[in-house]
Design a protein around this nucleic acid. Sequence first.
DNA 1: CCATCTTGATAAAACGCTTAATCAGAAATG
DNA 2: CATTTCTGATTAAGCGTTTTATCAAGATGG
Lengths: 363, 363
Amino acid sequence: MTSEEASPGGTGGSPRRRSAGRGTQPVTMRDVADAAGVSTATVSMIINDKKGARIGADARRRVREAIDELGYRPNALAQTLVHGSSRFIGLVADAIATTPFAGQIIHGAQDEAWKHGFVLLVANTEGNEEAERDAISMMLEHKVRGILYSTWFHRAAEVPEALRETDFVLVNCFSNDGTGRAIVPDERQGGRTATELLLQQGHRRIAFINATTPAPARTGRLLGYREALAATGIAFDPALVFEAYPDQEGGYGAAEQLLGLGVTAVFCYNDRLAMGLYDALRQRGLAIPEDMAVVGFDNQEVIAAHLRPPLSTVALPHYELGAAGVRVLLGIDAAAPDAVIRLACPATPRESAGEGLADRRAS
Amino acid sequence: MTSEEASPGGTGGSPRRRSAGRGTQPVTMRDVADAAGVSTATVSMIINDKKGARIGADARRRVREAIDELGYRPNALAQTLVHGSSRFIGLVADAIATTPFAGQIIHGAQDEAWKHGFVLLVANTEGNEEAERDAISMMLEHKVRGILYSTWFHRAAEVPEALRETDFVLVNCFSNDGTGRAIVPDERQGGRTATELLLQQGHRRIAFINATTPAPARTGRLLGYREALAATGIAFDPALVFEAYPDQEGGYGAAEQLLGLGVTAVFCYNDRLAMGLYDALRQRGLAIPEDMAVVGFDNQEVIAAHLRPPLSTVALPHYELGAAGVRVLLGIDAAAPDAVIRLACPATPRESAGEGLADRRAS
DNA sequence: CCATCTTGATAAAACGCTTAATCAGAAATG
DNA sequence: CATTTCTGATTAAGCGTTTTATCAAGATGG
């Protein structure tokens, strides 16, 4: 049983701060003012310690005491009302639960927002257009400072009409009409980095298993792959580029084609694909990375860090995507009105790319 | 360039709804009232279509038009202020990004909250106590209807003092002083279900690889395992219970001990452990499920659904945990003040437990 | 001793909305 | 025709803050 303190103003109450308690009428600034024998204006000034405010030491003390005593909490909504602008930032995501990715975007956004005194209003739409409209409406009605519109995989997106009623930043997606600011991963650099992970180990005949599903990642990573080869003076061989549905089953199935081509290393479109490939390779008695070096993409923690051997991969900067999103939204990071900002995908070397094999492979 | 409509009240404007536009002063109810030539009271009544309000058809039409014309959105914060109670529900999570689990809790909570016209205020604390205090303060200041306090894995938790200033529900955790309402997964039933998945296939000598890390899951699942055996009339053999750190490496390492004991099936504490075990088994030339049937726990999508063969497992009801959390919070699901509600962990049979092997194994 | 400053605090308006109370006029009633 | 009853709306108070303008009184200066 929670003891319900009935009498509100009792001066003889316990000296320690007493919480408002559930069900009790919330304590307002008026209550504090009355308890301290001052006006609400005074209380307000003390709380926000407005400089230039002339308030005596005694009043200050009395107010502080009253606040403690009553367990007063300012009403943020009332503050918002008078200030005109709220401390909310909306984040609409198309798939919060399906992957860990969305979670990382939320995490990054939330951390950064928090840092600047903002709070995240999160809505999950599961791609449902109506849910999306509702979510945005709700956010606009809460007078959010702006909205982050995010997708769980990097893609072009149709920007909902209503979004344009406020400031918005696209995260992990970009508008297909080229308008609006967007933060996306740099797929090309990522592809280059992944390939370099292999090149550094001396590999020269490197296959690329691309996705069958059209996406910026598909074209971007291929571009990066070619770029890296070119930079090393290796001719691009179209016969070494394969395609598979980007999941474990796809990777498993793709293994067959890889063999007998003199390929010593593979760059997989993503970690899941690599995971499937592991199975297929192992089944054929091929060792990783000795017989075949592998790098993935995404750095999907659950998988990459715990495969056998641990998978060298390239990370998608989801956390940073979210954080940069709010920075751009808040104008902390400057960005042209229709800028598309590309964030680096950092290399995450582990063991599957091989190590110190350069000598063996070099000739 | 977005065309900035400067003149606000123009009657000759485009008939289609015109959005407020960024940077523009927001459209208030006053504006609508003026445009329609009525008072704000009238507008308010029309918007919320208060029954009992006596308003002529013509005024109705004019107001609707003005709303459309101006692109008016009610200010939810002002509404909250007058109603006294907000439509916010706070969700504080200790690890939003680390696992997909938290995401699913958020998802469930958000869906259910939404259904009842509530919005989620999400805060991520990464276990940091100060962040936690700040998050809760923030939520209280926003006058949330209540708070969901969630953890990414099922455990006892210290309930922060401040939480008690409002309604709260513990999600995926429970207070170590036994106070407060909590929603947790039913680990025992889960353990039983997992074991039954194997028993159903005719297995009789079933090992259990438990976690080394103390947790309700560890004791609960073991209990369930024993319960299932007992129900089938199989004597519990302590020699068949092993322990390993609950990740892939742990599972890989545990394989050794399993062999030569006549064990035909293993129940793994979680999917990651099972994944590691897969590797170890395969390395020894053992086929799953023919030589060794395996079930996991957690139904971690990325892993379970895509192992080779797909892993039979038991799902943690994260989505439901979140949803039930808000239902209890809102009083839709009744729950005693200190009730701990256990949600079922449903079986998720795939192929690793074997199928139709009952005959072969029976004798 | 009167004018002026300074100090410490207050009153009141405003933010955007809801709602109870009120009001003016038209229609119905006696 | 005077009165009551509807009808269709308006007024105004209030929600919990912030903030500007104002005020009373004591201290200071001439």
